[in-house]
Design a protein around this nucleic acid. Structure first.
Length: 285
DNA sequence: CATATTTGACCCTC
DNA sequence: GAGGGTCAAATATG
């Protein structure tokens, strides 16, 4: 970064992020209008806008993540420990521990969402009756998508699953129809109730009926403080919890920087992050 | 045969 | 050293 004022660089990035997020919000509004209009030609338009929204948020998220790559920014989404792994080591068992990385947890009665996941492991977890399933994006290799998720059946309610999403989908393939690679975990039963809950008449799947702050202890014992009532309009975006109405979600991340969004109104004002990261406001664009 | 899952081993963090 | 995350060979499935 020699010769370039780091603050100027940061400001430009913030503006870019804000612009991306704002564009996403605007597109969401457009989509909401379209969805409220049952005209047949609306479907294609909705699809198009959907793609744009996803792209806007992906770009924004990507830009936020890039702060980490620059290093030293309080917005860093990766924990300091993330960089501790040894360089140059390859091979079996060599991995980045995801703890503290950009992740969030949802509680759902089904593990399906709109992305294609491939199971790559399962582990018995201490003090847990049920094993934890490990999934990575199907497009990990063909598109380099780094998104993973962990699925843990909840002891308190075996019909529910705690799903931890780690990392962002960088793949652009979203299957509009919910598709989940069949999971054959012995504990992974496809309960009728689960299916009903997530496919209720024309009913969209809500990938995030409950999203909690991951930045807590790992016990998973405080899962009851869920944000109430996600609107289901945004069912197609696991990465973008429903946000198309006033009944907006609370979603937050485990990273050390981003705390929480109580609703999307932050787009009109400023986003408050942990540390001193703040957007100046839309009029600064 | 291509693709997904299972499962034990490996190796990292704490 | 325990616990947990990932790899990859073996196996299953369509």
């Amino acid at each position: 970064m020699s010769g370039v004022c780091p603050h100027a660089d940061t400001t430009a990035r913030k503006k870019r992020i804000f612009k991306d997020l704002l564009a996403g919000r605007d597109l969401a509004v457009q989509l909401q209008d379209i969805l409220s209009d049952p005209h047949p030609s609306s479907a294609d338009k909705a699809d198009e806008i959907l793609g744009k929204i996803l792209w806007s948020f992906t770009q924004g998220i990507s830009a936020l993540s890039s702060f980490e790559a620059k290093g030293g920014d309080p917005l860093s989404w990766e924990s300091p420990g993330e960089n501790k792994l040894r360089q140059g080591e390859k091979g079996r068992g060599c991995y980045k521990r995801r703890r503290g990385s950009h992740s969030w947890t949802a509680v759902n009665s089904a593990i399906e969402d709109v992305y294609s996941w491939r199971k790559y492991g399962q582990k018995e977890i201490l003090n847990s009756r049920f094993p934890r399933g490990y999934y990575r994006c199907t497009h990990k290799h063909d598109q380099g998508c780094k998104a993973t998720k962990q699925v843990q059946r909840m002891e308190e309610d075996p019909n529910m699953y705690q799903i931890t999403y780690i990392g962002q989908h960088t793949c652009r393939e979203i299957s509009r129809a919910p598709k989940m690679i069949p999971d054959s975990d012995p504990w992974e039963f496809k309960s009728p109730e689960s299916q009903i809950r997530n496919h209720h008449e024309n009913g969209p799947i809500n990938p995030f009926p409950c999203v909690k702050d991951e930045h807590k202890d790992d016990s998973g014992s405080d899962l009851t403080d869920c944000a109430s009532g996600f609107n289901q309009d945004w069912h197609d975006f696991p990465m973008i919890p429903s946000m198309a109405s006033d009944d907006l979600p609370l979603w937050s991340f485990s990273d050390d920087g981003l705390q929480s969004f109580s609703n999307m109104s932050f787009l009109d004002g400023c986003i408050s992050f942990d540390g001193d990261f703040q957007f100046a406001g839309s009029d600064h664009l």
